[in-house]
C-alpha cells in the first residue's frame, strides 16, 4: 500500500481549512513539501501552525480541503505509518520509565526502534535517565524523550511542533545535528518554530503562515534576500553610522565608500528574522 504512493509528496495540503465555530484556524492552505528537505513552518502565535500540524498528523479533522501524507488522507491510520511526530507539549505515562514509554510508542508504531540508541546518545539522554520514571524528568528531559520517540522508528517524515522550546544551548546544537542527519538520509522534516535563527540554520526552506493563510513558501536564501542588510561605518573621529541596505540599492554604500574619513565598514547579512518581520509587516 505504502509503496504505491511513494512518488506522492510526503506532505500536501490542498485548500486545507479548519474552523472552530466562527473562529478560523486555517483557511484554504495549499502547501507541498519535497522529500529529503527540512522545511520550517513560521508564524506568529495563533497563526495556525499547530492547527495545520494537527490536521497533518490526524488529530484534527479538516473542515474543508485535504491534508495528505504521501497522497493519502492523514486521518487514515495507514497514511501515518511512515510518520514521526513530536507535539509542542508532549505528555507521557508519568509512572513508566523513559524506556517503557519509548517501548510502548515503538510498539504502537509497529516499526521497532532502530534509531533510538543513536538519538538518545546524540541528545544526551543516557541509559540511567531512561530507566527513571518520566514523572521525575525535568522539562528539558521530557522534550528530549519526545524527540527520541518521534525519530526512534526511523520515519520517512518527521513533524516537529516547537521542538527546541525547552532545550539548553548544547542540546539545541545536538538537535540541529539530529535534524540535519535525518535530512541527509533522504527523509523529510517539517518543523514549526518561533526561533528564527534555528530555522535559518537548519532548514532548507520556510513556509510562513499568517491568520491561517500561507504567506510564502520559499528557500531560506530567497527569504533572507528579502530582508535588509545592516550597514555600520566607523569614521576617523570615532563617530559611527548605521543604516539599512536594501537589496539592489547600493547608493548608501557608495556614499560611505566615497568618504575619506571612513576607517571601518561592516555589512551584516540579511537575516530570516528581518525577512519575517518585513513579510509580516507588508501584509498588516
Amino acid at each position: 500500500m505504502i509503496g504505491t504512493v511513494s512518488s506522492a509528496p510526503p506532505i500536501a495540503c490542498r485548500g486545507l481549512t479548519k474552523r472552530f465555530g466562527a473562529v478560523v484556524g486555517v483557511e484554504d492552505l495549499d502547501l507541498e513539501l519535497e522529500p529529503g528537505r527540512v522545511v520550517g513552518f513560521l508564524g506568529a502565535n495563533g497563526a495556525g501552525k499547530s492547527t495545520t500540524i494537527r490536521m497533518l498528523v490526524g488529530l484534527l479533522r479538516p473542515t474543508a480541503g485535504q491534508a495528505l501524507l504521501w497522497g493519502e488522507p492523514a486521518a487514515d491510520a495507514q497514511a501515518r505509518q511512515r510518520l514521526g511526530y513530536m507535539p509542542a507539549d508532549p505528555a507521557f505515562y508519568l509512572a513508566l520509565s523513559g524506556t517503557e514509554n519509548l517501548d510502548l510508542l515503538a510498539a504502537v508504531h509497529g516499526r521497532g526502534s532502530p534509531d533510538r540508541a543513536s538519538a538518545a546518545d546524540l541528545l544526551g539522554l543516557d541509559a540511567g535517565a531512561l530507566r527513571r520514571p518520566v514523572g521525575e524528568y525535568s522539562s528539558g528531559m521530557v522534550q528530549k524523550l519526545a524527540l527520541i520517540q518521534a525519530v526512534q522508528h526511523r520515519p520517512d517524515l518527521v513533524i516537529l511542533d516547537e521542538p527546541a522550546n525547552r532545550l539548553d544551548p548544547l542540546a539545541h546544537r545536538r538537535f540541529e545535528q539530529l535534524v540535519r542527519a535525518i535530512a541527509d538520509a533522504g527523509r523529510t522534516v517539517f518543523l514549526s518554530s518561533h526561533t528564527l535563527s534555528e530555522v535559518q540554520d537548519v532548514c532548507d526552506s520556510v513556509a510562513m503562515i499568517r491568520a491561517g493563510r500561507l504567506l510564502a513558501h520559499r528557500s531560506v536564501a530567497e527569504l533572507s534576500d528579502l530582508g535588509t542588510r545592516r550597514l555600520r561605518a566607523v569614521f576617523r573621529d570615532g563617530m559611527t553610522h548605521e543604516a539599512a541596505l536594501a537589496k539592489g540599492d547600493m547608493a548608501p554604500l557608495r556614499e560611505l565608500l566615497a568618504r575619506e574619513d571612513l576607517v571601518d565598514l561592516t555589512v551584516e547579512p540579511a537575516t530570516l528574522e528581518e525577512a519575517f518581520v518585513e513579510l509580516y509587516g507588508e501584509r498588516v
Binding site: 498528523v57 490526524g58 488529530l59 491510520a77 495507514q78 497514511a79 501515518r80 505509518q81 510518520l83 511526530y85 507535539p87 507539549d89 508532549p90 505528555a91 507521557f92 510508542l105 504502537v108 508504531h109 509497529g110 519526545a146 520517540q149
Partner: peptide, 8 residues
Amino acid sequence: ELLFTAPI
C-alpha cells in the same frame, strides 16, 4: 497527541 497519531 502521541498515541492517536500512531498508525492505529
